[in-house]
């Protein structure tokens, strides 16, 4: 295995006296879907916030490709270095059309390796096809159903062909059928040059798609390994999965 995409070491994020992340260390490999699970308040979303630069860390480091130190960058530079993140609450641009939403995902054509308007248009079409919203492209994002918004947001973060894709609860509130489709979509997104970080509460979904699972508890790593083994780990059963 080559250099990990993301290496988190000894990361601490503190809100007042509360430590949301407490010396957390973690490595995310390219070509894998790495799931983060754990009870509410374990620090999953905080970790994503720290990686994407929205939340400042109070200690430790996060590196991209073993080179770029992300804790010192702002969110725009982090995004432009190829790390994209889908929020827990669908964060599409509701007053814009579906197509414009996707177009916004490519803020810098040169950075995305696209030359000329036609290449950008092609990328937008391709992204719309992948997320299955090609027919909705002229509609306003705010008019879409909840599931479609989730896919659209995946499309926005996907459009720039990111190296690291972070998905915060992509199947929350979806029907079984939509969850199924999302699973298929996620497996399609797997790529040797892309690392995917998935935060999810739906254990069956995680088991279906994740290559590796990290269980967080009170800002620390409780378990790391496959989902199958996580289900057997007594510590994980105790704090999260239940007996």
């Amino acid at each position: 295995m080559g250099t990990p995409a993301i290496v988190v070491s000894g990361l601490t994020v503190q809100f007042g006296s509360f430590r949301a992340l407490d010396g957390l260390s973690l490595a995310v490999e390219y070509g894998q879907i790495h799931a983060l699970i754990g009870p509410n308040g374990a620090g999953k979303t905080t970790l994503l916030d720290a990686i994407s630069g929205i939340t400042r860390s109070s200690g430790g480091s996060i590196s991209l490709n073993g080179l770029t130190e992300l804790t010192r960058c702002n969110e725009v530079d982090i995004a432009l270095s190829g790390i994209r993140r889908k929020f827990q609450k669908p964060s599409v641009f509701e007053a814009l059309s579906v197509r414009d939403n996707i177009a916004l995902g490519i803020p810098s054509a040169r950075q995305a390796g696209l030359v000329g308007q036609s290449a950008i248009d092609q990328r937008i079409e391709a992204t719309l096809d992948v997320i299955g919203l090609a027919e909705q492209s002229a509609r306003l994002a705010g008019e879409l159903a909840h599931g479609q918004k989730q896919w659209l947001e995946i499309g926005i973060v996907l459009a720039s062909d990111p190296k690291v894709l972070m998905l915060d609860e992509p199947v929350a509130g979806l029907t079984d059928e939509e969850t199924e489709r999302t699973g298929v979509l996620l497996r399609k997104l797997k790529h040797p040059a892309r690392a995917i970080i998935l935060v999810e509460h739906d254990m069956d979904f995680v088991e279906q798609v994740a290559d590796r699972v990290t269980v967080l508890h009170e800002g620390k790593t409780l378990f790391e390994g496959s989902m199958k083994n996580a289900r057997l780990d007594p510590g994980v059963i105790d704090v999260y999965l239940g007996r």
């Binding site: 994407s52 994209r84 993140r85 964060s91």
Partner: peptide, 21 residues
Amino acid sequence: LNMRAVTLNRTMAGCIGIKTR
């Protein structure tokens, strides 16, 4: 387009690389 995106959702806009500043 970028201006409207920032108006609608500043955090998301920043996270997809729009230079909000």
